[in-house]
């Protein structure tokens, strides 16, 4: 009876662990505690459980958080920020401060985007190409918006910087167009024969 109460209490305490971990190991942990309670006094087992919770909870929560895949939205947002910052650096190239800030932000956000992409790629399941339409569309739209905002804020673009800026705009428009085509294809269910959309 006393053991049943201890196990009931432990089941409640298990809720402190991350859900995924609890689903995976919860039944085994309860079974293990049941065996311990059969062989040792409940007070000793429960006092060990308290120490065990204090030691294992922070680590398991931290590990679960670190393993969580970054969302595709993070990748797209950082990529768009990198493109925008690059545009700012190009447009404001005549000012040293603007150039340094623009390039620094572009490099940092580009690295973060790459990191988020790699992390997400390693963990999430592969998806059909058409499911990625919004990344291209969103990335293109955000970059175009960034370029327009940056241009209106910094004023005139100096002569030699038109070409790189046009390349950025062309890439953004291409991404926007490709995203639109894939989005329409997805809506039409054109690729729905073998892969889930």
């Amino acid at each position: 009876m006393k053991d049943q109460r201890s196990i009931g209490l432990y089941r409640i305490l298990l809720r402190l662990y991350p859900e995924k971990f609890r689903e995976e190991y919860g039944p085994d942990m309860v079974l293990l505690l049941t065996h311990q309670l059969r062989e040792e006094p409940a007070a000793r087992v429960l006092s060990r459980v308290v120490v065990d919770l204090a030691l294992s909870l922070p680590t398991i929560h931290l590990e679960t958080r670190m393993k969580r895949p970054s969302s595709s939205a993070t990748t797209v947002a950082f990529a768009a920020l990198a493109m925008t910052a690059l545009t700012v650096a190009i447009i404001g190239g005549s000012s040293a401060g603007m150039l340094v800030i623009g390039l620094s932000v572009a490099a940092a956000s580009g690295a973060l985007s790459l990191l988020a992409w790699r992390q997400g790629r390693a963990i999430t399941n592969p998806q059909p190409v058409t499911a990625q339409w919004w990344k291209l569309f969103g990335g293109g739209a955000l970059t175009l918006a960034g370029v327009i905002t940056a241009t209106s804020m910094t004023g005139e673009v100096s002569g030699g910087l038109w070409i790189p800026m046009m390349i950025v705009i062309a890439l953004a428009i291409s991404a926007l167009a490709a995203g639109s085509v894939l989005g329409v294809a997805r809506l039409n269910g054109r690729h729905s024969h073998n892969v889930p959309l």
């Binding site: 085994d28 942990m29 459980v49 065990d52 030691l55 590990e63």
Partner: peptide
Amino acid sequence: MGPGTLYG
């Protein structure tokens, strides 16, 4: 080891 440490 407690259950949390073991399974963690």
